[in-house]
């Protein structure tokens, strides 16, 4: 049986009177790509923040890479790379300096850092433009750089909040190929949120659908799709039914 990378039990988070996440129970195997699907405001970002130990749960538990998010969040962040809803790139630093900073954050020594930065920038075809500031780049290029930054310390878990949002078809496909290669080569676990159902269907080993903080379905894309033609139809049916019932 595969090792578990992420395990949540009745994970709940309230913001005053609003329940952002309601009793989420999930188990995500290591070395898989997991797609977390839901409409805006469904609780996806809250879940990411809980998994990274940036927020404490109101009740329930989450265990990531063997560590409890409330007991040892630092150990989780040590082995995790994150690309959140904004690229988080420093507009005043060059592309190379952005990676250099995060290489220093993860305490890579100078030699390893230099090699890793060159390797990552060459892989995304931006090595020649390393002295430029990413603010002058297209969204696709910035997203690629932000993904490279998340990978600078070769994390065991990669958390991505809509990594292909706003990208053109080619750029999105490049990101997807990189993620698939990453899992195949290094066995990295990828937890991603997306609104792109085709992407989830093609890329993910497992998906979960969430609405208003409640888990509606969880399984392989084929299982979640059920009798529907595609994942998008299944997603719409699930969310509409949940909204009609609430």
């Amino acid at each position: 049986m595969a090792e578990t990378a992420i395990q949540t039990r009745d994970l709940t988070r309230d913001f005053e009177s609003v329940r952002a996440l309601d009793s989420l129970t999930l188990e995500i195997p290591a070395g898989s790509i997991f797609g977390f699907l839901g409409p805006n405001g469904a609780g996806k970002t809250t879940t990411i923040r809980l998994l990274l130990g940036l927020l404490s749960p109101s009740s329930g538990t989450a265990c990531v890479l063997g560590s409890d998010t409330t007991v040892d969040p630092a150990a989780i962040r040590q082995r995790t790379g994150a690309l959140l809803d904004h690229t988080g790139l420093y507009e005043r630093l060059t592309a190379e300096e952005n990676l250099e900073f995060y290489g220093r954050v993860w305490q890579l020594d100078a030699n390893a850092r230099r090699k890793r930065i060159q390797e990552l920038l060459e892989r995304i075809g931006l090595w020649e433009r390393r002295s430029e500031r990413p603010i002058e780049w297209s969204r696709g290029m910035r997203q690629q750089l932000a993904l490279a930054r998340a990978l600078v310390h070769s994390p065991d878990l990669l958390i991505l909040d809509e990594p292909t949002a706003g990208l053109d078809v080619l750029a999105a496909e490049t990101v997807r190929e990189r993620l698939a290669a990453l899992v195949a080569d290094r066995g990295t676990t990828v937890f991603l949120t997306t609104h792109n159902m085709v992407e989830a269907e093609r890329l993910c080993d497992e998906v979960a659908v969430i609405n208003s903080g409640c888990l509606l379905a969880h399984g392989t894309p084929v299982q979640v799709r059920g009798e529907h033609d595609d994942l998008e139809s299944a997603f719409l049916a699930l969310v509409r039914t949940a909204r009609a019932e609430s």
Partner: peptide, 13 residues
């Protein structure tokens, strides 16, 4: 500038 959350998601104490 939306760079703080990424920094907070890093290993830095």
């Amino acid at each position: 500038r939306h760079t703080l959350e990424t920094l907070l998601a890093s290993r830095l104490p």
